[in-house]
Design a protein around this nucleic acid. Structure first.
Lengths: 336, 336
DNA sequence: ATCATCAACATTAACGTTCATGTGAACGAT
DNA sequence: ATCGTTCACATGAACGTTAATGTTGATGAT
């Protein structure tokens, strides 16, 4: 700007106002300034603008893992939403690690993002304290905390798990291995509730020896099933597996395949999320359809609204309904 | 800092130096300053630091689509690499749109990122001009431009396509439908070359009526095959499909499945990228294994090196070798 | 002729840092 | 006693913007 001002022969302020397209500037000088800007390859400095003004036109997305197809879709929904309104996006993976979550929040606060979309991977709601102390607008997405008055958008995990479990029970399965996600987040907690609820509704007893935690990726599913199968097929004390995600189910299916366990004839499988490949897996995967990208879009929109209004509007909490998708992986032969 | 300085009774500069852990500060004052910083919830301002210093500790990643599992892996590789060195990451999706590419580059220049990792989706190398004019360090990843002296890390698409096509030919296929990616990027161009080369090596003639462009996602593959099948199964004038990505292959398989076309017995399919789910598709997918995350890691490391040195070091251009993974989707029954 | 009004600019300060430079006191050496 | 050093800090300027306020000359009204 200084250079432009010198070239055109005006003050820096005039340049600023010309570039911002304010009024009270003569068309002549404005034109000259714009030309000079082009000639000098002027590029706005968002750092200076952010420092001077009070917003950076940047938001942060803090998720466990961008390569997990579920979060990839959520991120995409956020990105397209905020980009349309001129916001940039800072991405942080936490790898379900509380320490990394803390670091990510600290980082984005230091970067003075205008708001944060966060998918927490732990149970301790104190992780939100920093955001709150700094009065940074934020929205939880896909995971939330119980009894806390913050904005979030999630899907109904309790219902989803209930429906899936109910379906497996209807298929004649009484012992259903639950490969749940990491123990702390609401997603895993709520699904455990749904699973228990379905068992109870059907008069089945809950056995926590066939509930495992920590299955987030395909490798996890693969590893867990492989470990089970090491003790021999006869030792399997379940007839169905309810996976935390289709992503996990992929690993589970791979493990069964390698060990010659037939799905669904020997063991039934259900996933979660309805990822794009699930209908062409071998066999096609029964799953729960979640509006993944929509989660991101809604989260983005809530955040943008928060940033705009700045006031503490009434808290927005949205719970989207999932939908059971029954496919071959859970169907007894006689039902196919 | 001003507040801390007032509380402790020192100058702002002293505060700055204490927080930066410089020497020539007495332990006493340093301690007092750190305490006051904590008490006042001081948070570094990266905007101011970036404005004053000459780096922002932020890099940009500009890719076609973060939700595409291939790029999701690349992004992950980049993220983990740069995070380890204290860099933040700005993510931009371009959706293969030259206009969005231009906007993304402009945006990240305005944000004064220290460097850019870019996966261009068009053939016009002028898109790099802005980056070069601003002397912004950048690395191309997964796609490059011919005859241009810039840093990149890619996989050998010509070789990959050659090997896949060769394999399909060996399986007895003479007419292989190529569902290529968008026409412009090097990935699609090189694979077309590899495809042609394999045909020629086997004395087959190239027929551009069975080469399609624009297949990037599952939906694209689905749509294209569905359109073909609308004219009736008898009209199919190919016996194998070589998809731009396993992602595309998922859609292709879904379309065939819906229309009762058996894979591989009626039509063989090969994908590309070896995505995590490909081995448990129905049937398991023949594909080309690409070190996706490694592409990101290497790209990130090159960029960081560039940022450090700042000098125009010798250009780094890495071409990673792919590996053919043969699975059921391409095997004639008698070969299984 | 006088004065308010207004258009079109300029000046100043501030956003939060850090670098370059300045300063004063204490200290040791001669 | 004098001088150079060193330590531990302070001062000022600058990074690139923009909001608040100031200035000037022209215009029009009376």
């Amino acid at each position: 700007m200084k250079d432009i001002a010198r070239v055109v022969g005006v003050s820096v302020n005039t340049v600023s106002r010309a570039l911002a397209d304010k009024d009270d500037i003569s068309d002549g000088t404005k034109q000259k300034i714009l030309e000079a800007a082009k000639k000098l390859k002027y590029t706005k400095n968002h750092l200076a603008m952010g420092l001077r003004g009070k917003h950076t036109q940047t938001i942060a997305v803090i998720v466990p893992e961008n390569s997990n197809p579920f979060f990839a879709e959520v991120i995409k929904g956020i990105e397209e939403t905020v980009k349309a309104r001129g916001y940039g996006l800072i991405l942080c993976n936490t790898e379900q690690d509380p320490e990394q979550e803390k670091q990510a929040i600290e980082l984005v606060l230091e970067k003075r993002v205008d708001g944060v979309i966060f998918s927490p991977a732990q149970g301790d709601k104190n992780i939100l304290q920093q955001l709150q102390e700094h009065e940074k607008p934020f929205v939880l997405v896909a995971r939330y905390f119980k009894n806390i008055n913050v904005n979030y958008v999630v899907s109904d995990n309790l219902l989803g798990a209930f429906l899936i479990t109910q379906h497996l029970i209807e298929q004649g399965h009484h012992r259903i291995l639950m490969l749940n996600g990491t123990r702390e987040p609401s997603s895993a907690r709520d699904r455990l509730e749904g699973y228990k609820k379905a068992l109870k509704a059907n008069g089945l007893t809950f056995d926590d020896s066939i509930v495992r935690f920590g299955a987030m990726e395909a490798e996890d599913g693969y590893r867990m099933i492989k470990a089970d199968l090491k003790k021999g097929r006869a030792s399997l004390n379940f007839s169905a597996v309810f996976c935390f995600s289709d992503y996990v189910a992929v690993g589970v299916m791979k493990a069964f395949q390698e060990e010659g366990v037939a799905v669904p004839d020997d063991i039934a499988i259900a996933g979660y999320d309805d990822l794009f490949f699930s209908s062409v897996l071998c066999p096609p995967l029964t799953t729960m359809r979640i509006p993944k990208r929509e989660l991101g879009r809604i989260g983005g929109n809530i955040l943008l609204k928060l940033i705009k209004s700045k006031k503490s509007d009434p808290v927005i909490q949205r719970v989207l309904k999932p939908r059971l998708i029954v496919r071959g992986s859970s169907l007894k032969i006689r039902n196919r």
